[in-house]
Design a protein around this nucleic acid. Structure first.
Lengths: 145, 145
DNA sequence: CGGGTCACTTGCAAAATGATAGTGACTGTC
DNA sequence: GACAGTCACTATCATTTTGCAAGTGACCCG
């Protein structure tokens, strides 16, 4: 019985947070995206305690967001790579980043630029059906039967 | 010196998580959006311990995502309302919800429907410049000087 | 053989979380 | 007007999680 089989609520937000709902996990994902895929790279970049990093990494593996990949046998060396689920989470981090920039963005911050257009990326959450930003149209919350 | 004046990194994601980076905070925001604005409503809906809820609520007030509003003097009754910053965070919760539905969505889940079209909302994070989903175009990460 | 790197684990202290009980301001009811 | 009941908490204490520091094992390089 994994942690998911118990207490399955009906709220998809809760379901998501169940898998990544803490700060370190998200920062690990962000760093892996930046190319920091090895334990030592993550540890020094984040300034996280080694035991905590170990636990977060195994939790993320268990949750299916990253996979541990041995790329060298001698010496034994592993890297952590994003799975499809992990890559799918990255846009959310971008959205959180945009929010953080807006509401807690004093000083100079890093940012993403579109490689083709050169423009600074402005992440927004929209409804794929209408293309309208979430929050710009009234919604109705629906519960399952 | 608030918690923000120290350890200001250059990453906007970190800046965002600094303010909301835990499960309860996000679930509180979700519930307030659903109209559960009072202490007792939140406590029973979330099944959270009262001391924890108190602390989360004051942290969210301090972080500027919600505001405490006294709507009755006799008896003294307060409600917690979303600020602009808090409302701006809701689309992120929708995106997390969409992710949670996709990767941890066994069973029946609640969902949002567009009030006008009646269609089920499908939140996606796009670049406002191009309209393209984040992840569909190569990006370049840029650091401040 | 000795030092150095990498990827951790172990042991213990400190902090956060959670369960339970209690408190103060009321309100409404006999 | 005493008494149960609701609301919005606080206080106390156990449990859990986090974090620091030190250590370990596999290996590589001189």
């Amino acid at each position: 019985m994994t942690l998911d089989e118990i207490n399955l609520g009906t709220c998809p937000v809760d379901r998501g947070l169940m898998r990544v709902g803490d700060r370190w996990s998200m920062l690990v994902l962000r760093d892996i995206e930046r190319g920091l895929t090895r334990y030592e790279q993550l540890r020094t970049s984040l300034g996280i305690a080694p035991n905590i990093l170990s636990r977060r990494l195994s939790a993320l593996v268990e949750a299916g967001l990253i996979a541990k990949n041995r790329y060298s046998e001698h010496p034994p060396r592993d890297e952590y790579l994003l799975t499809d689920a992990g890559r799918d989470f990255l846009p959310i981090l971008m959205a959180i980043g945009a929010w953080g920039r807006k509401y807690n963005g004093a000083g100079a911050l890093s940012r993403h630029r579109d490689a083709a257009t050169g423009e600074i990326v402005r992440p927004v959450v929209v409804d794929a059906n209408t293309g309208a930003p979430i929050g710009s149209r009234p919604l109705r919350l629906e519960y399952p039967d």
